[in-house]
């Protein structure tokens, strides 16, 4: 059994977002970088749990990024996993990234691929579906529960206002969100062993870049809050109805 978990580097959830170079580049000034929370808390931890249950499982991590991604991938290895692969490329185009991951996945002969449900920077929710299509694999997005019995996976996924239980035979790609696992903090033993775990750097395969970011924009600032006295909530309702006209 071989599992591949996709890891992405993102700004910390509390990071203040700003841009430079005439709003064409994300400003990394003072930004803390973290493992994309969905990749770390759910995809990676669930994969580690599967390996704990069946120690013969081989667990690899993959990331697409330049050398500055290495602290993030080491941190992921400190939580768990046998080795990591870094594709030495930088891109914001989901197809380009998916093409790199699909190539790593084909070469590694994996049975199961996990991604987070989306990255908290570009929020595309698209890498999983694209990799699955490029591999011609089934894809179950937005999983809240994942169980494996031999080669059959039972996955509960979120749907609009409901849930669905799916069953699929491996190989399979699943995007994970809250519910699949619980966040783990790396311990000292994990941190020490991560230093010596293999981190393979591979050069990207040729792939097209289908999209490009022209510029960024911050939302307009709010004009300021209109405060209504606490003893007159009816006035608030009147304003919402007559002034804001929201109902």
């Amino acid at each position: 059994m071989k599992i591949l978990v996709c890891i992405s580097k993102t700004p910390d959830t509390t990071a203040k977002i700003s841009f430079t170079q005439n709003n064409t580049k994300f400003s990394s000034d003072g930004v803390q970088w973290i493992i994309n929370p969905y990749d770390e808390w759910y995809a990676l931890v669930r994969a580690i749990e599967l390996k704990e249950k069946d120690p013969s499982t081989v667990l690899h991590l993959v990331t697409v990024g330049l050398a500055d991604t290495e602290p993030i991938i080491r941190k992921a290895l400190a939580i768990g996993g046998d080795e990591a692969i870094r594709v030495n490329a930088d891109s914001a185009d989901p197809f380009y990234i998916a093409a790199q991951i699909a190539d790593v996945a084909r070469q590694g002969g994996y049975d199961l691929i996990f991604t987070g449900k989306e990255t908290i920077d570009y929020n595309g929710s698209s890498i999983g579906g694209m990799v699955a299509e490029l591999m011609d694999w089934p894809y179950i997005p937005l999983a809240v529960k994942f169980e494996l019995n031999g080669t059959v996976a039972t996955v509960v996924r979120e749907t609009e206002g409901g849930e669905e239980t799916d069953e699929a035979t491996l190989p399979l790609l699943v995007s994970c969100q809250k519910g699949v696992a619980e966040q783990r903090i790396p311990n000292m033993k994990g941190i020490m062993s991560a230093r010596t775990k293999p981190l393979k750097v591979v050069e990207p395969v040729a792939a097209e870049t289908l999209t490009s970011i022209v510029s960024f924009e911050l939302p307009p600032a709010k004009a300021g809050v209109k405060l209504i006295p606490a003893d007159n909530p009816a006035e608030l309702i009147r304003l919402l109805h007559e002034e804001a006209k929201v109902f």
């Binding site: 929710s125 698209s126 579906g129 894809y139 997005p141 289908l210």
Partner: peptide, 23 residues
């Protein structure tokens, strides 16, 4: 870009090598 769109749009885009913007 709801649960259905998130499941299908990336697959269609990758299949046809079409640029995708989601959201």
């Amino acid at each position: 870009n709801n649960f259905s769109g998130k499941a299908v749009a990336p697959r269609v885009a990758a299949r046809l090598k079409a640029g995708l913007v989601s959201g």
